[in-house]
Write a protein that binds this DNA or RNA. Structure first.
Length: 260
DNA sequence: TGACTTGTTCAAAT
DNA sequence: GATTTGAACAAGTC
């Protein structure tokens, strides 16, 4: 699922494949995924335009246009990007397809259609308007402690809340808390300052390493409690048994004997 | 067949 | 008013 590391990997993919080429035509098959624009104005802005650079904030990807603002992509749960050279076959299913002048294509697909496409003038304004917290990798320890102070909700739901910290999703939150040996339901205001600092350090550590390996899960197995998210499996660290609980409406796996 | 999955949003509760 | 909780959405998988 696209959390911060996956989106960072998409950002690089755009950098490597889609910049500095004139857009000839776009096709949009799911207009309902547009956030603040219409098919007509999306076409109007993108066609004959050029992508020049990229920016990521949390799980949001912004692609700067040579003329006029940014294209914003949010990947929801199943969003993906595919570049196909002029002789390659682009994926059959797509939400947005960009056809460059040389015939190569760039496709945004999203089978469950929980993603979003928007045109934004200025990404800082967009981030502010929608109330996103600071990006998890840009965040300082002081900011982190301030953002979490006096919160009573469970640590897992707090670090997953994009309005508090942008970028952490369900699976990475489980990994972070497992590594810190903290129970996901612990109310934030009952955790020691030291524990919160540990969560901060571990968040950075895991996300940085995930970014380094392009979010390749096979190379990140050592951070997670499980390779397969399934209750009842033995804990990799102690003699405990993996527990399953719905926390904040999300399926959560943790070891009740070493996370407390 | 239907329960389960996730990120986000909105409504309701505290 | 701010914060927290929970349901809803969409569609693929098993």
């Amino acid at each position: 699922m696209p959390e911060l590391p996956e989106v960072e990997s998409f950002r690089r993919y755009v950098e490597d494949h889609a910049l500095h080429q004139k857009i000839q035509e776009i096709k949009l098959s799911k207009p309902q995924m547009l956030l603040n624009t219409t098919v007509i104005s999306l076409k109007d802005v993108l066609e004959s335009n050029t992508f020049v650079s990229t920016h990521r904030h949390g799980k949001l990807l912004f692609i700067k246009l040579k003329e006029q603002g940014f294209l914003m992509l949010h990947f929801g749960m199943t969003g993906e990007l595919f570049y196909a050279g002029k002789n390659d076959l682009p994926p059959e299913n797509y939400v947005l397809r960009i056809i460059f002048h040389d015939g190569s294509t760039f496709s945004f697909s999203d089978s469950r259609m929980l993603g979003k496409i928007a045109l934004v003038e200025n990404y800082n304004d967009f981030i502010k308007q929608r109330g996103y917290g600071p990006d998890a990798l840009q965040l300082t320890e002081k900011e982190f402690l301030t953002l979490l102070s006096k919160r009573k909700a469970a640590i897992k739901t707090v670090i997953m809340n994009q309005k508090i910290i942008a970028g952490i999703g369900n699976e990475f939150s489980d990994a972070i808390l497992f590594q810190c040996r903290i129970h996901p339901l612990s109310p934030v205001n009952q955790l020691k300052n030291e524990q919160l600092k540990e969560v901060f350090d571990m968040t950075k550590k895991i996300l940085k390493e995930a970014v380094k390996v392009n979010a390749d899960r096979d190379k990140l197995k050592h951070f997670f409690l499980l390779n397969q998210r399934k209750a009842g499996l033995p804990c990799v660290r102690c003699k405990g048994q993996t527990a399953f609980k719905t926390i904040g409406g999300r399926s959560s796996y943790f070891c009740p004997s070493c996370q407390n």
